[in-house]
Design a protein around this nucleic acid. Structure first.
Lengths: 266, 266
DNA sequence: CGCAGACTTGATTACGCTCAATTTGGGTGG
DNA sequence: CCACCCAAATTGAGCGTAATCAAGTCTGCG
């Protein structure tokens, strides 16, 4: 068996107690307000929201924020860094169901039965805000904007998973890679970073796992995209040169089940 | 729950306006109360809830409940029958992202941006309750039980999609079919029907589309399971003989290091 | 009775996995 | 500073699963 997860990883995977020491930084001052949950609240309302937020010291690569089965207490907003969300199987394997970058919320998977379905592990040094659910719940009753925002957020999460279903169900390996890179690019863009040049915080192994491919395939296809001058990959550093072509490759090709050829008639 | 389908598909696929004539049936009298949104409400609260529900005449096979881009107004609870939720691509193709059976809610995909991401089409004659979102929203403020139920529902939907990601990302064709059948079986069971004998309301084509396979593969694998006496398939009628073995095939195999556990849905 | 659509079955092809051998780069210690 | 080690990534060869292409069968219905 393979299990290269072992080794150093087994040490990193240990849970470290989260340090709850407050860091001096208010929601109002946070650069991610526009992306985060309090989006749409008035200044006073944000102050109110702010009181409920627990700010944590950064967690380091491999540390776990919560694990499958943990009691669900809080959402978490990523301030910086990134995490992967996954299931660990008893035998040491894992299945990654998503990555969360700065400005993104996680922990919604606990809403179902008050326990987390998944495990969240930091891919790099990562800062988070903890948003206790009981507080969010209270605030929702007072501020319907917040309630709507939360609903929208869940709706968006659902829509994203459904989109991913599409990718995994119908797309070729090359299309998956392209779609994945475009998704990252878009997300980096959204929070003010370059969408054309960025570092992948996850390994090829993680990408492959997430996309339902073998790591070798990921490597090969990245190589091919590089050869075709669509992008440049140097280890974790990616530069996208031809977004258009990448879009074409990963893009919204009609599915193959209906053999209907795309009509030119508008 | 038999409802054989017949008629001409080309005619059936047309959209018919939904008839909103109220049918005399209260939530309290409904056999699905225990599965539906008002679950957990007191009798009086259910009465209150009941007032907001719009009951519709059944819709027929191929009719669409809502379409991609439609304004989001309501959730829908399936009273009987079933629907598929899918995206239509411009050229006539489609991607199915889920099936909804009696006792299940749909329409959550509209929460994101007040428009439906997906189209919902009846697979057979199907009765529904419409739950206008603004009314649900109001009720949520008054009855925190309902609010929690709604959150749990969304959480469950998210968890289900994530589970499906797993299936599509990592499972072989045979594992997908087995998992699919088991999921149906479980859902039939949950609402009091036999989980061992049931009719598929969807075509092989739909199953294939949903599972990311070719229709031929679905057919072949069902045939194989039949040969191996694990089940009997006669067109749409399925009898499962050996649930255990089916579980083995689709389920949590531990002999393969990277295979992840698929069904954890409680 | 014959047609249409859904389904099944068979033959062939190809995409991506597996196995295996290197290469690269980061980290560590001499 | 270099040698060494280990993990991550790349590259190559061969294979297997499921898609594709192509008949052929079954069923309901006009």
């Amino acid at each position: 068996m393979v299990v290269e997860q072992r080794g150093k990883a087994s040490l990193r995977d240990q849970v470290t107690p989260i340090n709850l020491r407050k860091v001096e930084l208010s929601c109002k001052a946070c650069s991610l307000t526009e992306l985060c949950l309090p989006r749409g609240l008035s200044k006073d309302e944000i102050d109110d929201f702010n009181l409920g937020v627990i700010r944590q010291d950064p967690i380091h690569r491999g540390n776990q924020l919560f694990r499958t089965g943990d009691n669900f207490r809080s959402f978490y907003a990523v301030k910086s860094g990134s995490l992967k969300v996954h299931i660990n199987t008893p035998d040491g394997g894992e299945q990654i169901v998503g990555f969360h970058m700065a400005g993104e919320l996680l922990g919604l998977d606990g809403l179902d039965n008050q326990h987390h379905t998944f495990t969240a592990s930091a891919l790099e040094t990562t800062s988070l805000c903890e948003l206790p659910f009981n507080i969010i719940e209270d605030l929702c009753k007072r501020y319907s904007t917040l309630y709507q925002e939360l609903c929208a957020l869940m709706g968006r999460e659902i829509a994203e998973y459904q989109a991913m279903l599409l990718v995994l169900g119908k797309r070729s390996a090359e299309e998956r890679i392209a779609t994945f890179l475009l998704s990252l690019s878009k997300r980096f863009n959204k929070r003010g970073f370059s969408g054309n040049k960025f570092n992948l915080s996850m390994s090829r192994h993680d990408i492959a796992n997430y996309l339902g491919l073998a790591p070798e395939t990921v490597s090969r296809l990245l190589g091919r995209l590089h050869e075709e001058d669509i992008l440049t990959v140097e280890r974790r550093y990616v530069q996208i040169h031809d977004v258009e072509k990448l879009h074409e490759i990963g893009g919204n090709r009609s599915d193959n089940s209906e053999r209907a050829a795309a009509s030119f008639a508008g």
